[in-house]
Write a protein that binds this DNA or RNA. Sequence first.
RNA 1: GGCGCAUUCGUCUAGGGGUCUAGGACGCCGCCCUCUCACGGCGGAAACCCGGGUUCGAAUCCCGGAUGCGCUACCA
Length: 504
Amino acid sequence: MSERPVRVRFAPSPTGPLHIGGVRTALYNYLFARKNGGKMILRIEDTDSGRFVPGAEAYIIEALTWLGIEFDEGIANGAATCRQSERKPIYKKYVDQLLNDGKAYIAFDTPAELEAKRQEIANFQYDARTRGSMVNSLTLPTEEVKARIERGDNYVVRVRIEPGQDIVVNDMIRGKVVINSNILDDKVLYKSADQLPTYHLANIVDDHLMEISHVIRGEEWLPSAPLHVLLYQYLGWADTMPEFAHLPLLLKPEGNGKLSKRDGDRLGFPVFPLDWIDPKTGEKSSGYREAGYFPEAVVNFLALLGWHAGGDNEFFSMQELIEEFSLDRVSKSGAKFDYEKGKWFNHQYLMNKSAETLYPFVQEILLQHKVDAPKDKVLAAIELTKGRCTFIADFWEHIHYFFVAPTEYDEKTRQKRWKENSSEEMRALYKVLEGIEDFSIENSENIVMQWITDNGLHTGNIMNAFRLCIVGEGKGPHMFDITSLIGKEETLRRLDKAIAVLSA
RNA sequence: GGCGCAUUCGUCUAGGGGUCUAGGACGCCGCCCUCUCACGGCGGAAACCCGGGUUCGAAUCCCGGAUGCGCUACCA
């Protein structure tokens, strides 16, 4: 283990909205950096000009900001300051170095020609066995190569892999992974067409220049890690090569495969942090924020998909995650995405919030429904109902009857709770309630219960019918919590109306 | 096909040779609380992929198989 300062990066490609697996990668990088007193860097890997999607970069930054994942470098005024597309001369320099050192060569084979080769030869691979029969600087005379370049022919630079050597990747999560160079191909490092490096080269150069100490990324990169190790050696940077940690993948909740962008709308839950509208197709993908999730619930849930603190506790704030996080407690195998558990987390976070904290959100919902109620009444209603809500948006369903009298009565509840003598009993209850001066929870409950006892009535029958009259359906907090909040006048009004409607 | 990684309840996982008749959580089921719905409490069903080996002893170590996933682009 080196003693150098911890510096990690999150390096997304701006090809669309950041999906939840990417968010988790960013989160683990962030936790690792904070835990070890290191720096977190954002780098935009936009070396594929063809797949660039406008707005994607801003989306990534907004999403991570929402979740509380902060960057120490690479971001200023809300925009990324490190984009690979803006570093062309830097990569060119190292491409030339590799070329001069004979670690790479120029190839003129066109994509169409390569495609033809693949059709022609099964398992065709551009490598030590085949490069001698291809069109490149190894097979062409020097003048010809020069002439072609001057003529403006497009070419690529390929890494020259020497066969027959074992390449060792030390992975912090998986241990030692050995791969023989025979199976590696001469990957393209640079394209003359857009003068941009490919991922592999840009990645190594930037990680080196930015003094990245740990590369924490998805497992899909493990197969190319040997190439990266080789590039560090070719460039002469082997001694400062970062440590690698390849994270297990996030899998589809059902069936097989990696969680993908399409799964969200197919399965009916978000796989993106924020809503996203595709600029080309106009297609909308839903996000956690708009679905009503709290960022801290998403972070908590995501952190536990592939990592475990060891004890029985499952609730962690960002600060606690930072304190507890460790790469050697990251799982090796992929985790299926369990949306139900995500909802449960949100429910827990919502229940644990104070009515005061929830107030602005609920107030907005009430306003949308044209309800203007005093704050203390809203706070009380929130306190009584928050245990029933998973999302903020659920509040209206559970809170509306505190502010709006029922206009209709749930048919099922009516059949079950409205008995033959209910009208009569409710009329009697009306009289009792009318006579109560102090309409507080305790007092009204005492009086009504005493009345029930004295007259040999059935508590369940009375209360359930009463609930149907006041709420309109068979749910909600205890009746006197509701009636004392809506007040005597409103209680009597609702009761009167309900008796008329339900007796008809 | 080739190469790599992985494999404990349906799902997320604890477990790093004996304390495992395998623990927790989500979901599911039952009971309690109760005027209903929730919340909460209690309880239940539910797993070490298979086969060899190492060992006095294996969920834990090794090998093989099976299965899953990933990669195999002038994409990241």
